[in-house]
Amino acid sequence: MSTKYANAVAAIRAMENSLLSRNDLDQLINTATKTERENIVASKRGSGAEELTLEGVWETIRAYAPDCRELEILLYRNDFHNLKAALKSMIAGKEPQGYYIRPTNLDLDALYPALSAKDYEQLPEYVRGTAEEAYELLTRTLDGQLADSLVDTACMRAMQRAAEKSGSDFMRKYAQLTTVCADIKTAYRCSRMKKQRSFIETAVCGSDALDKDSLVRASLGGTEGLFAYLEATSYGDAAKLLAESPAKFEKWCDDVIMELAEGARMEAFGADPLAAYFIAAEAELKNLRIISVCKESGTDRETITERMRKLYV
């Protein structure tokens, strides 16, 4: 049993006490005003506590475990989003800063200048090739959607590669589940939009859990064909939810990742509890956003409750 990150895990365990519980969410759903919601959240966090942000959570985790490279996989989606933002800003001649997502592993000040100068060597190895390929594709075809698909697929592949390299089961499963969710979503959209095989082949990544060729073939057969294929895999439940509504499928995607994170609650050492805390904070922020938006639009309590993502605590 590795005793790595004993200090970081214990600190994270103490921080988990300030995450919102199911009762807190119920209270938030029952509030009438924004001020009431802010008061509930503030009382949970304790006096003088900073607002929960993913950037803050990431900085805290890195302060306790600065050498934990496997956690960087959690930010790959942000990294590749930022790559897309920088590429598109470059083509459109705009400033990219407003489109970036944080936290990220990339040096955002260096990203745009590096892409503009085509100096890909300045970028981390896992985005280098994709940046060059996406830039070439974008300038040649001016097809933003195709370039996005290429970057998204490259992101999933990079996650899988990095997770494999890390040797962490948690990260392997995280990368696999993230890829499966992204692939199903992409295949569904492609089948609805009746996209060509060549496009789908670029947009779908594939994984050990969901074979790329089968998924491409299934999505060429329309949504019926896709659902029929998914029903035969271990993602039959997800297919049913997707057939009902994409929002339910989105919730399923978040919940399976949270189920993975829940496994780390029993672990006293290692990087998994740190990753799980980051995922928990992500889910909490998403829940707060959903409550806020739903309350503003006057959505009823039952619907908001249905939309709530699984919690870690």
Binding site: N7, V9, A268
Partner: peptide, 16 residues
């Protein structure tokens, strides 16, 4: 080892 873990908790919640 326990000291490492304990310091992690105390850094967040000194009352423990």
């Amino acid at each position: 080892l326990v000291g490492e873990a304990a310091a992690g908790v105390v850094s967040v919640d000194p009352s423990k």
